[in-house]
Design a protein around this nucleic acid. Sequence first.
DNA 1: CTAACATTTTTCCAACTGGTCAAAATTCTT
DNA 2: AAGAATTTTGACCAGTTGGAAAAATGTTAG
Lengths: 242, 242
Amino acid sequence: MGPPKVKNVESAVMAKGEAKPIAATTAKSGAKSRPLTRIQREKQDIILEAALDVFSMHGFRGSTIDQIAEVAGMSKPNLLYYFPRKEEIHRRLISALLVTWLAPLREMDAAGDPFPEIRSYIRRKLEMARDFPRESRLFANEMLQGAPRIIEMIEVDLKNLVDEKADVLLTWMDQGKIARTDPYHLIFSIWATTQHYADFDVQVRAVLGPARGGEGRFEDAARYLEHLFLYGLTPRQPVTVK
Amino acid sequence: MGPPKVKNVESAVMAKGEAKPIAATTAKSGAKSRPLTRIQREKQDIILEAALDVFSMHGFRGSTIDQIAEVAGMSKPNLLYYFPRKEEIHRRLISALLVTWLAPLREMDAAGDPFPEIRSYIRRKLEMARDFPRESRLFANEMLQGAPRIIEMIEVDLKNLVDEKADVLLTWMDQGKIARTDPYHLIFSIWATTQHYADFDVQVRAVLGPARGGEGRFEDAARYLEHLFLYGLTPRQPVTVK
DNA sequence: CTAACATTTTTCCAACTGGTCAAAATTCTT
DNA sequence: AAGAATTTTGACCAGTTGGAAAAATGTTAG
C-alpha cells in the first residue's frame, strides 16, 4: 500500500456564465458556455482544495467563506467570483466525492472469487481512508447532520448500488462460499471499520501512542481487519463457546 | 434489548456564584456555593438537553446559542443567565459524555469468560448507539474536528483504559481463549461497527429502506455483529480459502 | 497595440453572532 | 404580606457572516 496522494478534488469541468458571474454548476437553458480559462480552472481547484480542508473539519455551517478564502490564499470577494454561493462549493465537493467514494464497492465483482473480492474491497476502502481522510470526514460530517444535501443520492444511487452488491453477497452465501449472514450489515461493518481510521484519526493516534500510531497503523489495521472478516466469513460449523 | 430512554444528560450538580451570575462550572477559590435552586436544576437540564440536540447535529462552531435557546424554549439572554458561555455548555456535555461512554469498556472483566465478556461489550455499545445516538454524534463531531476540547482526556484517560483492556485481551490470547490479533484494532473495530448505527443512522435507514430500516435494524445488527466477531475470534486453524 | 473580456480589489450592507446590562417580573423566605 | 433573592425580559453592542456592486487592474485575441 503505497500512498498515491492524489490532488485535484474534481476534474469534471463546468460551464461558465455570460459576462460577469461564472454560471452555476448546472448548465441549464441555452446559456452559451465558454470553456473555462486557465485561471478559472486553476483557481477553482485551489478553492475546492481549501474548501475540502475547511468543510471536512467544521461541517457546512461551521465553516466560513472567509476561512476558505484564507486557506485558498485569496480574498473573499475574489473567491465569490468563482463560486457565487457557499452552498455551491459544498455541493461540488460532495457530488465529486460520492463518485469516488463508491468506486471500490462498484468494483466488487460477482464473477470473482468471494474472499479475494471482499478482501480487496476492504483493502481499497482502507487505502481511501488513509489517502483521502478529508473526503471521508466531509462525508461523515454530512451524515452527522442528517445528510440534508445528499439524502436523495443516498436513497437512490447508494441504495441501488448496495442492493445490487447485497445480492451478489447473497449469491455467494447460497453457493456456500461465504458464511450466511446479513449482507447489508456486512457492508455497513466494512464501511464502519475502514472509515473509522479517517474519521476518528485523532483518537486512533492518541490511543495507539507515538510508538504504534505512526504510518504503520494502516498496515496493522489491514492485517487485523483481514483476519476479522476472513475468519468471520469462513463457512464452517460454529465452534462450541464456553 | 428494551429501550430505556434515559433523560437527564448530566446529574452532577455544580456550584452557583454569589449574586447575579451563576458561577462557572469549576468551583474555584473560596466562592461560597449555595446549592442549586429547583429552577436552576430544571433549567440547566432543559438547556443541556436542547444543546445536545443542536451540538450533536451541527458541531460546536455550527451551533448557535439562539438555536439552543429556541429548542430549550427560552430567550437567549435567559439561557446565558444559566450558562454564561457557549463553551461552558459544550464542555459540560462532553465531560458528562465521556464517563457514560467508557462505562461499557470499563466493565469488561478480565476474570470473566472472554466470549461472553466481548459479546456483552458489543451488545452494550450497540444499545448505547440505539439509546443515545445524540451523545454518539456529539462525540463523533468532536473527533472530526480534531477533538480540540478533549484531546487531553483522550490521550490520558481513554488511552489508559484502552491500554488496560488491551492487556486483558492479550492475556486471553496468550491463554488460547481467543484468536491472536491486534487488541487495539479489535477495540477500534467494536467502536466503529457499533457507533456507526448512531453516527450514520440516516445512511443506514436509507439503504435498508422502509422494510428493514425500522426498529428491528438494531436486532439485525446485533445478530450480525455477534456472528462477525464470534467466528472471527474463535481460535482455530485457518481454513483454506480458495 | 488595443479593445474586449477576465480577474481582483475596495467599499459596503443587512442579517446574524456571542454576549452585556439594567429594569421588570417572579419566586422564596420569614 | 413584605423584603430579599432569583429569574426573565428587552434593548443594546461590537464583531462576524454571506454576499452585492462597482471600480480598478490584468490578460489576450486579433
